[in-house]
């Protein structure tokens, strides 16, 4: 049990790590849908020539492991003048990664808004901006909610990968403690339980939200 006592001693560092994990997760979860919406919007409504490069961006990001992307950014970045500290690189990488997935989710949502709802708005006299703000974006948000919650969980789990490029988040903090005290198993267990709780809570909140929004959905 002494291992667990040592764990108790290391608690402040672990709490710091948890804090950074949650910060990276929330920041990534906020930034990547915004960037993703930009990409989805440009591909749907922008000039034709932007579609190809954006398609390539989405497919390359979705077709390669996050770890490889992070290695490329973190170890390759300095060679092209992008010398970032691990945390900044982590946040940038997480955002660029999440945005590719979100752009597909949001593009699907935009396409799924029934054309008739926009036509009805035109007939009532709403202008373009009003239709986007009042009809398109809210309806799209409802449609993409389940997929987005899934993606938030994915992003949370990907933050653990950032430990490999030495971002001092939860996984790094706990495994660091583990190797210092030869308490590998205990530390891995603590990690598993931390992440499991976070993902389970996120999933539950997501499902609850979905139930509450059910009345906005026409079968």
């Amino acid at each position: 049990m002494t291992d667990f006592d040592a764990l108790w001693e290391a608690l402040p560092e672990i709490v710091d790590g948890l804090g950074l994990t949650i910060f990276m997760w929330l920041a990534g979860s906020l930034l990547s849908p915004v960037l993703g919406l930009g990409v989805a919007w440009a591909r749907r409504f922008g000039p034709g020539w932007v579609d190809r490069p954006l398609w390539a961006y989405v497919e390359v990001i979705r077709g390669t492991p996050f770890l490889v992307q992070m290695f490329l950014l973190y170890y390759g970045g300095p060679f092209i003048g992008l010398d970032l500290d691990p945390t900044t690189a982590g946040l940038l990488g997480l955002t660029v990664y999440g945005a590719a997935y979100f752009s597909e989710i949001l593009r699907g949502g935009l396409i799924a808004v029934p054309k008739g709802h926009v036509e009805a708005a035109l007939c009532v006299g709403l202008d373009r901006g009003q239709i986007i703000r009042r009809i398109l974006l809210p309806e799209m948000t409802l449609l993409v909610l389940p997929a987005s919650v899934n993606m938030f969980v994915v992003l949370l789990k990907e933050t653990a990968v950032l430990s490999i490029i030495t971002v001092p988040e939860l996984t790094m903090a706990v495994t660091g403690f583990g190797s210092a005290n030869f308490a590998f198993t205990q530390s891995a267990l603590v990690l598993a339980i931390c992440y499991w709780s976070l993902t389970e809570i996120t999933g539950r909140v997501g499902r609850g939200l979905e139930r509450r929004l059910d009345r906005f959905r026409i079968a």
């Binding site: 709802h117 036509e119 009805a120 708005a121 006299g125 309806e139 409802l142 906005f216």
Partner: peptide, 17 residues
């Protein structure tokens, strides 16, 4: 010009939110 017109659709097209 469209302001003179009201339209009712086969699929109702009420805004669900």
């Amino acid at each position: 010009v469209r302001r003179n017109i009201g339209m009712v659709f086969q699929q109702f097209n009420l805004w669900p939110h």
